[in-house]
């Protein structure tokens, strides 16, 4: 589902964010990416989201090659991903419903289908009663769950999460991780970027560790 083949990324000015990274995440797999800040985690995510392109090697996500993907295909590619951000990126002037409905609206779904899907997604994250709220009225943990609901509402095959528990206390972090595990159990490929080594270590999943742009250890 996600495949890095000898991928390097060098920025203008010579900084090499990723050096010869090779790994493969199969369909339905869940894994973590850890590393210090500046180790290349964000670059890796940006490559997977087709925000940037590798300078060398090949990135394949969902059977599509990111290298030189035509600009106009990028939006359609991104619709197949569910992306969870550290600071959840909810729009403050839109309600919970409108925030979660956004990917469906972009996909051109009918209002009735949107309504059903949004309710289902909210139900999954346990916040159906907050459907008419605005994000500021919710706690940090709730906002993150709304962010996850928006990521999964389009039933993506792959979920990419960037430090989803970065701002949460340990109990809430566990709740969020449990959510990802639920989605993984029904077949979604999940990749979580996190520097919370304690939390990662307690999970029975593969861990990819980045250090100065290189992959340290790839347990089979």
């Amino acid at each position: 589902m996600i495949e890095f083949d000898q991928v390097s990324k060098r920025y203008h000015g010579g900084h090499e964010a990723l050096k010869n990274v090779t790994f493969r995440l199969d369909q339905g797999e869940m894994a973590f990416v850890t590393g210090h800040s500046g180790a290349g985690k964000s670059t890796m995510l940006r490559l997977m989201m087709a925000i940037e392109q590798p300078t060398a090697g090949q990135v394949r996500v969902n059977h599509r090659i990111i290298n030189r993907m035509p600009r106009r295909q990028v939006p359609f590619f991104r619709r197949e991903l569910g992306i969870v951000h550290q600071n959840h990126e909810l729009l403050p002037e839109k309600t919970v419903f409108e925030n979660i409905a956004l990917p469906l609206q972009i996909a051109g779904m009918s209002p009735r289908d949107i309504d059903n899907r949004v309710r289902a997604a909210l139900d999954k994250v346990g916040l159906l009663d907050k459907i008419k709220y605005y994000p500021v009225m919710l706690s940090g943990g709730e906002q993150q769950r709304i962010g996850i609901a928006r990521a999964v509402v389009n039933k993506p095959k792959i979920i990419l999460a960037d430090e989803p528990t970065g701002n949460l206390d340990p109990a809430l972090s566990r709740d969020i991780m449990d959510l990802f595990r639920q989605f993984n159990r029904v077949g979604t490929t999940v990749l979580v970027v996190s520097h919370d080594l304690g939390l990662v270590a307690r999970m029975p999943y593969r861990v990819l560790t980045l250090k100065q742009g290189q992959l340290k250890r790839v347990p089979v």
Binding site: M49, R72, P75, F76, F77, R78, R79, L81, I83, E89, L91, L102, P103, I106, A107, R150, N154
Partner: peptide, 10 residues
């Protein structure tokens, strides 16, 4: 930005 990340076209 959010619209573009979740797959909105230009």
């Amino acid at each position: 930005l959010v619209v573009k990340v979740v797959g909105g076209t230009d």
